[in-house]
């Protein structure tokens, strides 16, 4: 039986981790490789690096980070943020990432999902979906560009579409819950789980270990991602996993 995965997410800008990270005494809190190593030791099952560099130089630096992480860690990791072409995917995967995550570019050009999946295999194509509840459609609407641009897509329709196009996994972020620390959006997750048969990573809203228990037991997410509660040491991967075990959730 597969275990449920816990995935810390690191925002990287110009080769450095941004958004303060406040745990443990490490030499340099901005170094992606050192931080990744700490999470690995805590028992993280996988990592996501989100490249938020706005410049070409920053993106080139990201490739170096990927290379270094791949050379240090023996756990899988995904790289997302600004990936817009087959060439971008190739550069990141060749540098040693296990998966790439597509977001805005997938909405702009869904063919990119198909091309990436055909070329590199579905297992390394993650589609990240940012969704917010919209009263006017009575469901969740898909947004792009970090939540700034609304699309025409309803979340279930888009999720089905990306899987048909070859996505191997969905990273589903609730914009309503993101940053609230009141728990994952279980309704959104359940809605998407019903229509796709690829793994779904829950994201947005984790505030404590119980929220992870809920997302696995109630929404049957395959994995759960969080950033700030790990970075600010509000909890650790270890203690989340301890709580999950106590509640009968199968973890590594």
């Amino acid at each position: 039986m597969l275990t449920k995965r816990i995935i810390p997410c690191l925002d990287v800008k110009d080769g450095r981790v941004v958004k303060g990270i406040q745990f443990v005494q490490i030499r340099d809190a901005g170094d992606p490789v050192e931080l990744a190593t700490v999470y690995d030791k805590q028992g993280a099952d996988e990592l996501v690096f989100l490249d938020i560099s706005a410049s070409h130089e920053g993106r080139k630096t990201m490739i170096e980070v990927v290379r270094e992480v791949a050379g240090t860690l023996a756990i899988p990791f995904t790289v997302g943020g600004g990936i817009g072409s087959l060439e971008d995917m190739r550069a990141i995967l060749r540098a040693g990432a296990d998966k790439v995550s597509l977001n805005s570019a997938a909405v702009r050009n869904p063919e990119l999902i198909t091309e990436g999946s055909d070329f590199f295999g579905a297992q390394c194509i993650v589609v990240a979906i940012d969704a917010r509840f919209d009263d006017s459609i009575g469901s969740w609407r898909v947004y792009t560009h970090g939540g700034r641009n609304a699309t025409e897509w309803e979340v279930r329709d888009w999720a089905k579409h990306v899987v048909e196009r070859g996505a191997g996994e969905i990273l589903l972020t609730s914009m309503d819950q993101d940053g609230e620390k009141t728990g994952f959006d279980l309704d959104l997750l359940k809605a998407v789980q019903q229509v796709v048969d690829v793994p779904v990573i829950a994201s947005g809203g984790a505030g404590n270990a119980q929220h992870f228990v809920d997302v696995f037991k109630e929404a049957d997410a395959d994995a759960a991602l969080a950033a700030s509660i790990f970075h600010y040491k509000e909890t650790s991967v270890q203690s989340v996993k301890g709580e999950l075990k106590e509640n009968g959730v199968h973890v590594r």
């Binding site: 597969l2 275990t3 191997g168 048969d197 690829v198 793994p199």
Partner: peptide, 19 residues
């Protein structure tokens, strides 16, 4: 197959940590 003997769907790929 993506579907077990009782007709329940399971996810393909087999992705993640297993014992």
């Amino acid at each position: 197959k993506g579907i077990d003997s009782e007709g329940n769907r399971f996810k393909v790929p087999h992705m993640g940590w297993n014992h």
